Simulated scan of single mutants.
Amino acid sequence: MVDIHLDGVGHSYDGGRTWALRPMTRTLHAARAYALLGPSGCGKTTLLNIISGLLTPTVGRIWFGDREVTRVPTAARNIAQVFQFPVLYEGMSVYDNLAFPLRNRGWPKAEIDRRVRAVSHLLGLDSHLHRRSRRLDPGRQQIVSLGRGLVRSDVAAVLLDEPLTVVDPALRWTLRSTLKEIHRDTGHTLVYVTHDQTEALTFADEVMVLQDGDVVQSGEPTELFLSPAHEFVGHFIGSPGMNMIPADLVDGVVRVGDTPVGRAADTDGALPSGPVRIGVRPEFVRISAVPTAPGLPARVTAVDRMGAYHLVHAEIDGRRLSAKVDTGSRYAPGALEYFHFVPDRAFLFRDAIRCGTIAAQDGAERA
């Protein structure tokens, strides 16, 4: 296990006219689990393939600990990689597929058997160990591929490229927990590519959110949910994502149309007046039937009953707003309600970057 350091690493597929991965410098620390999260085409698989050696970056250098590996081939980097679709020796049994990476490196027979059986037990493969891999369904084959990537305890890192795509949805929840258990057991450095926020947030110690080849924010899952530093993070993480509402900042007061909703708070000094966008998650929107200040009068347009909660949708002057409420709440389309933001959980954005928060107005009751 080693730190993986990216020094000005970037990649272009067209000679530098556009960047699939914009140059970045950062360190992935040993024994931590990282998720690279973002939509298709954002650069996450490019970054993973640069770390693995399948791609040589256009610019920058890569270090595994104190060893530069920028031009070192994949086979010499001492990593394990699991791809989106199964890569197995189909004529071999499940046991032999799991044992192959260890036999190839001369591990003692007893230790091979111990590791294979430990990983197969964690992945629910005990009853399949002596079956040929080609006789398994695609989802089970992918679980074997996952096990083969995790069976070695001596690798510098385990890299996983959307490994649960072909796995039955009912098994995914179990496998996410299993991955965390194996990570605790082995202490591997794990780098996990996914477009699924649930996988990223439940699995990783740190999530790196990518958009258009840039890491727009990196942090612990709770931090990304509660304190997004970029509009894209607020939109991409959460179900549904963050409400984004055009507003104006006038002499320190945030207004939506003519309605004040709070005062601006900024850690870097006074925020200048001008247009802003309010970002607030539906979890931090409150509704009342009376016009207490500060509150946005909005017309309810729909109510989605989601089982564990209700999602109330409303509109004010063409601006859409959603709130999560408990299942005992009763709101009807067409009703006029007053929407309030939990102080310090509503953020201000300019040019997509967070620039402040909305604090309670003087004398206003805090939620």
Rank of each mutant, 00 (worst) to 15 (best):
residue 263 R to H: 10
residue 304 D to V: 05
residue 181 E to N: 14
residue 213 G to S: 09
residue 37 L to T: 04
residue 193 V to E: 00
residue 258 D to Y: 11
residue 56 T to L: 11
residue 244 M to C: 07
residue 150 L to R: 00
residue 14 D to E: 07
residue 261 V to G: 01
residue 297 P to F: 04
residue 54 L to K: 06
residue 32 R to Y: 07
residue 173 W to N: 15
residue 38 G to T: 04
residue 296 L to M: 09
residue 42 C to D: 01
residue 121 H to R: 07
residue 243 N to V: 05
residue 187 G to C: 12
residue 263 R to T: 08
residue 57 P to F: 08
residue 343 P to E: 05
residue 138 P to A: 11
residue 135 R to W: 11
residue 98 L to A: 03
residue 190 L to S: 01
residue 260 P to N: 03
residue 233 V to M: 05
residue 196 D to M: 13
residue 354 R to L: 06
residue 302 A to T: 10
residue 301 T to E: 06
residue 18 T to P: 04
residue 97 N to I: 06
residue 174 T to I: 11
residue 146 L to S: 02
residue 322 S to F: 01
residue 157 A to I: 06
residue 334 G to C: 12
residue 250 V to K: 14
residue 91 G to I: 10
residue 259 T to C: 08
residue 114 R to F: 06
residue 356 G to D: 08
residue 148 R to T: 03
residue 83 F to E: 06
residue 325 V to Y: 08
residue 60 G to N: 05
residue 173 W to Q: 13
residue 76 A to T: 09
residue 157 A to L: 08
residue 174 T to G: 07
residue 263 R to M: 13
residue 193 V to I: 15
residue 242 M to T: 03
residue 172 R to M: 13
residue 349 F to A: 02
residue 364 A to M: 12
residue 43 G to I: 00
residue 223 E to C: 11
residue 46 T to M: 06
residue 203 F to V: 15
residue 114 R to C: 08
residue 45 T to Q: 05
residue 127 S to T: 14
residue 247 A to H: 02
residue 3 D to N: 15
residue 114 R to H: 14
residue 59 V to F: 03
residue 68 E to P: 03
residue 278 I to V: 14
residue 223 E to K: 10
residue 150 L to G: 01
residue 280 V to P: 01
residue 86 P to F: 07
residue 45 T to Y: 03
residue 195 H to N: 07
residue 41 G to Y: 09
residue 364 A to H: 10
residue 119 V to N: 00
residue 246 P to S: 09
residue 347 F to L: 10
residue 278 I to L: 11
residue 269 G to T: 12
residue 180 K to H: 12
residue 269 G to M: 15
residue 156 A to N: 08
residue 108 P to T: 10
residue 160 L to I: 15
residue 150 L to V: 10
residue 226 L to D: 10
residue 38 G to D: 01
residue 47 L to H: 02
residue 138 P to L: 11
residue 344 D to A: 04
residue 286 R to M: 11
residue 353 I to W: 12
residue 129 L to K: 03
residue 184 R to Y: 10
residue 245 I to R: 00
residue 58 T to R: 02
residue 220 E to M: 15
residue 111 E to R: 11
residue 128 H to M: 12
residue 148 R to H: 03
residue 54 L to T: 08
residue 23 P to H: 08
residue 263 R to N: 05
residue 172 R to G: 05
residue 112 I to G: 02
residue 37 L to N: 02
residue 45 T to L: 05
residue 93 S to P: 02
residue 47 L to Q: 02
residue 191 V to Y: 03
residue 268 D to K: 13
residue 81 Q to T: 14
residue 75 A to C: 15
residue 97 N to Y: 07
residue 43 G to R: 00
residue 119 V to D: 00
residue 365 E to F: 15
residue 274 G to T: 13
residue 100 F to Q: 03
residue 174 T to A: 08
residue 317 D to W: 07
residue 297 P to K: 06
residue 185 D to E: 12
residue 136 L to M: 09
residue 327 T to E: 11
residue 355 C to Y: 08
residue 132 R to K: 13
residue 46 T to W: 03
residue 212 D to Q: 14
residue 300 V to E: 01
residue 16 G to R: 04
residue 332 A to E: 13
residue 160 L to M: 12
residue 8 G to I: 06
residue 52 S to Y: 07
residue 330 R to D: 09
residue 16 G to Y: 04
